[in-house]
């Protein structure tokens, strides 16, 4: 892994070459939590750095896997990202949130790495995904005609007593969810990881991915639906396609 000397503009996640924190100018104000964390990081508090890594590492790895094929490469991309964060912190102005800055760096590095590896030929292949009007739910699950047209033909069955904790304790269900997430197109995966796994606010996700809120929710719903179908198949033994 190369030591990171490059800095990144906050517009793409980049620290500009001025110390101190400005008022955020990209719509998401820098939170008090971010300010406090940045102060601790600049004071050399290793515990603060561990906190930062623990908080975002999972989502960074999962997102990187949307751009590069191998887990090993994703780990390297994320390691490079953290190195860039360490190097860029003194110049981070706070014109975006810390998360927006870090994920901006990741996307920049992961795209670059993905293109260099040519494992994912073009990103535009996925970008067209949002332009189609496919329904999130398989249309064959609804009655096509008659008095009950538009009603469920193959309705979802109740998942009695299921809770997130019970689902997480079910290894097969977790594997099914992981596989469904891995199989998502990059544009859907980015949104699902940032919003549902990482817990970023809607505006923050839009800022990181440069998309509108409407677009975000179209993608988010399609991603959630694919994961839901994976869980449904796992719990009910329903074939993936009816």
């Amino acid at each position: 892994m190369n030591p990171v000397a490059t800095t990144y503009p906050e517009s793409l996640g980049h620290a500009s070459p001025v110390g101190g924190l400005a008022t955020a100018s990209t719509g998401i104000p820098l939170s008090q939590e971010d300010r406090s964390l940045i102060a601790r990081l600049r004071n050399g508090d290793e515990g603060a750095f561990d906190e930062l890594v623990n908080k975002h590492h999972s989502a960074l790895i999962r997102m990187a896997l949307g751009y590069v094929a191998a887990r090993e490469v994703a780990e390297e991309v994320v390691q490079d990202t953290w190195m860039a964060v360490i190097e860029g912190l003194p110049r981070f102005e706070g014109r975006s949130s810390l998360r927006t800055w870090i994920f901006g760096i990741l996307i920049h590095k992961a795209k670059d790495r993905g293109v260099r590896e040519k494992r994912h030929t073009t990103f535009s292949a996925f970008e067209s995904y949002d332009d189609d009007n496919d329904e999130a739910v398989d249309p064959s699950r609804f009655q096509p005609s008659g008095e009950w047209a538009g009603h469920w033909a193959f309705p979802p069955q109740p998942w009695d007593d299921q809770t997130p904790e019970k689902l997480l304790a079910n290894r097969q269900a977790v594997n099914a969810m992981n596989q469904a997430i891995d199989a998502l197109p990059k544009t859907l995966k980015d949104v699902l990881i940032l919003r549902d796994v990482e817990g970023a606010e809607v505006k923050e996700v839009c800022e990181i991915l440069k998309i509108t809120e409407t677009n975000l929710y179209v993608r988010l719903h399609r991603a959630r639906e694919r994961v839901r179908v994976a869980v449904e198949t796992c719990l009910e033994g329903r074939p993936a396609s009816l």
């Binding site: 999972s58 979802p156 109740p158 998942w159 299921q162 809770t163 997130p164 904790e165 689902l167 997480l168 969810m177 699902l192 549902d196 796994v197 817990g199 959630r224 639906e225 994961v227 839901r228 869980v231 449904e232």
Partner: peptide
Amino acid sequence: TQLALVRDTLEQF
């Protein structure tokens, strides 16, 4: 309900 369960489970992944 299923969709909300998926969302809430992902939060605790």
